[in-house]
Structures are given as structure tokens and as C-alpha cells.
């Protein structure tokens, strides 16, 4: 006997993500899922963002890492609440792991939650966490062909940050072609050119982030 199912394989994760979103909303916390390849600059961006928002917006961080807690320690030094999720070899965060981490985040004391996903451009694209925005960091040394190799990630992103632009003079990277390719399949996307080494472009990124947060609140 054949039974029609027609159900999403990741439906359970979607439901859990929705529950996370409700929890965040009820605490008026805006959550951002930061995704990139390993080493593209997620932790550096979090540190830059915290620095820029000091005294203005209260930030919390969830650090997804395959095993170490180095990134979490860097962030804790900034006096920001940080919860570490060790995926134990897993290649992405999922809504369930995020839910457990959320119980350790002081949601009442923060307005912005930055979630550093596991460094990987394939798997995290499939798993919603309950975030309000998906942000993708793609760095200059990785090359400008990344959108073609990982279309789903680029298609879903609300913002793409081209990081390490301080290295542009030394590497072959066509920012215009890169941006045009992404815009071609994702009309609404915002693209920023930044450097966490020189802080160039960080102001524009943070200002976009604050606008997104205020749009959510009103």
C-alpha cells in the first residue's frame, strides 16, 4: 500500500525553530544566524560588532563550535554573556541545540543575540535556528566563485558581508562580479564590504543591523 506523505524532512526542525523565534520575540530579542566557511571571520565580526554597540545595544552570543571553546573565551573577555554549543563533530547547529543553549542565555538582559554557526557553507543552510536574519560572511581569500558553489546559502542570506577587503590589493577577487552574481538570484540581499582588521565598513554593517532590529520592533 502506498501512503502519500508530502512532508518536509526537516519539518520537525522548522517547528522547533518557530518555537525558538517565539521565545526570542517574547523577550524582545533579535537573533542573527552568522554563517561562513571556517576562518572567514565570524568571531572577528562578533567582536567588532560588540565593540561598536558598546553602551548602545546589549548583546549576547551563542558560539557553535565543533569542539573548542576558544572563540567563546575571546567573547567572554568583552563582558558579554556567551553560551557555547559543542556540536561534538556535527557540521551545523540545529534548532534543538539552539533551544538548549537559549535556556542559558540571559534573554531578559539582551536585545541582540549573535549566533556563530559552525564554519561550513553547506549544512547550516538547511537548518533554521529561529533567527530573524541570516547573515553570510564570505572572505576575499576564499575566492569570488563561492556563490556558484554554494547557491543555497547565498540565495537565503539577508545580508552578505565580504570580509578581509584589506587583502584586496594582494588577491584576485572581483567584488563587482561577485555582488552581481548574488544579486542575480537574491534581489533583496544587502551586500557590505568590510574588514575586521581595519574596521572598514563595520559602521555600515552595524547601522543596517540596527535598522533591521528597529523594523522588527515597530
Amino acid at each position: 500500500m502506498e501512503i502519500k506523505v508530502l512532508k518536509d524532512i526537516l519539518g520537525a526542525n522548522e517547528q522547533m525553530a518557530e518555537r525558538n523565534r517565539q521565545l526570542l520575540d517574547s523577550n524582545q530579542v533579535f537573533a542573527v544566524n552568522l554563517m561562513s566557511s571556517p576562518g572567514a571571520g565570524k568571531t572577528s565580526l562578533i567582536l567588532e560588532t560588540i565593540n561598536r554597540l558598546k553602551g548602545k545595544t546589549r548583546v549576547g552570543v551563542i558560539e557553535g563550535d565543533v569542539s573548542s571553546s576558544l572563540d567563546a573565551e575571546l567573547i567572554a573577555k568583552q563582558g558579554v554573556p556567551v553560551v557555547q554549543i559543542n556540536t561534538g563533530g556535527g557540521c551545523h547547529l540545529d534548532a534543538n541545540m539552539t533551544y538548549s543553549a537559549l535556556s542559558n542565555v540571559p534573554l531578559q538582559d539582551i536585545e541582540l543575540l549573535l549566533i556563530e554557526n559552525v564554519g561550513n557553507l553547506i549544512c547550516p543552510a538547511e537548518f533554521a535556528l529561529g533567527e530573524h536574519r541570516k547573515v553570510l560572511i564570505s572572505s576575499v581569500p576564499e575566492g569570488d566563485d563561492k556563490p556558484f558553489k554554494y547557491p543555497l546559502m547565498f540565495h537565503q542570506a539577508d545580508a552578505v558581508l565580504i570580509n578581509k577587503i584589506d587583502l584586496l590589493p594582494y588577491l584576485k577577487f572581483d567584488t563587482q562580479a561577485f555582488s552581481q552574481a548574488i544579486k542575480g538570484i537574491n534581489r533583496e540581499v544587502e551586500i557590505f564590504q568590510i574588514s575586521c582588521a581595519t574596521s572598514q565598513g563595520i559602521e555600515q554593517w552595524v547601522s543596517w543591523l540596527l535598522t533591521q532590529m528597529s523594523m522588527k520592533q515597530s
Binding site: 500500500m1 502506498e2 501512503i3 506523505v5 508530502l6 512532508k7 538570484i185 534581489r187
Partner: peptide
């Protein structure tokens, strides 16, 4: 042109199962 909308390719579902 290079302005397009992705209309398929993101599917990930169970269509049906055959059971006894």
C-alpha cells in the same frame, strides 16, 4: 539577463512510502 527568481531546487521532502 541576470535577474532571476529561483523557483525549484530547494526541495527536501518525503513524497510517499510503500508499506505492508
Amino acid at each position: 539577463g541576470n535577474n532571476m527568481e529561483i523557483v525549484a531546487g530547494q526541495e527536501l521532502f518525503v513524497e510517499s512510502i510503500e508499506v505492508e
